[in-house]
């Protein structure tokens, strides 16, 4: 008799397990992709400088001697406007060098004008109108920010606008830890 009763309980158990799976699945945002670059060296890329900026452009070799942020932005990107004052504050306090990939500008003037209007927190900026660097970084949307260590290895990626809360709780402790690591 108890055997038969067990048989009736099995479907319920299977159902409960499925509910558990789906409940966990529902809390995950499918648009947040895993950071495939985590722990891997920065991909090879060379970008031309932004019009009117007197740097030489931006490439992989610029990321090999300091802990840096690489910020992906675009003048078309609304969330980047939200993020921008925070990046300006980081720059003013000399917290960390911030480099940038200006992603998918249809007009080569748009990026420089945007920076002129809202301020330019960046050390180096590369122009990436055809997503060459963005794809090799695995970028799906702007803004995205990568934390790169002294050896040029990507250690963390933040999707969405950076703000003080994310900086204090997640990035700053990581930055301090990475700075303690020895230079190559």
């Amino acid at each position: 008799m108890s055997n038969k009763r067990l048989l009736f309980i099995i479907p319920l158990l299977v159902f409960m397990i499925l509910v558990g799976y789906f409940a966990v699945g529902l809390t995950k945002d499918p648009s947040r992709l895993p950071n495939m670059l985590a722990g891997k060296p920065v991909p090879e890329f060379t970008l031309a400088p932004l019009l009117g900026r007197d740097d030489k452009g931006f490439s992989r070799t610029d990321l090999l001697d300091d802990v840096t942020l690489v910020n992906v932005f675009g003048s078309w990107c609304v969330a980047c406007r939200v993020e921008h004052p925070f990046l300006m504050a980081l720059r003013e306090n000399n917290q960390i060098p911030i480099h940038a990939i200006d992603w998918r500008e249809e007009d080569p003037q748009a990026g420089p004008q945007w920076l002129k209007r809202f301020g330019d927190p960046y050390t180096l900026v590369g122009d990436d109108p055809k997503s060459k660097a963005a794809i090799s970084f695995g970028v799906t949307g702007a803004p995205e920010t990568f934390l790169v260590d002294k050896k040029g290895v990507v250690r963390f990626k933040h999707i969405g606008p950076l703000n003080d809360q994310v900086w204090q709780s997640t990035l700053l402790p990581l930055v301090q830890q990475l700075r303690k690591e020895s230079t190559p």
Binding site: P30, L33, P34, M36, G138
Partner: peptide, 11 residues
Amino acid sequence: IAYVVSRYGDF
């Protein structure tokens, strides 16, 4: 395909 997967994952 392997290149694109290496950038964006199996998704």
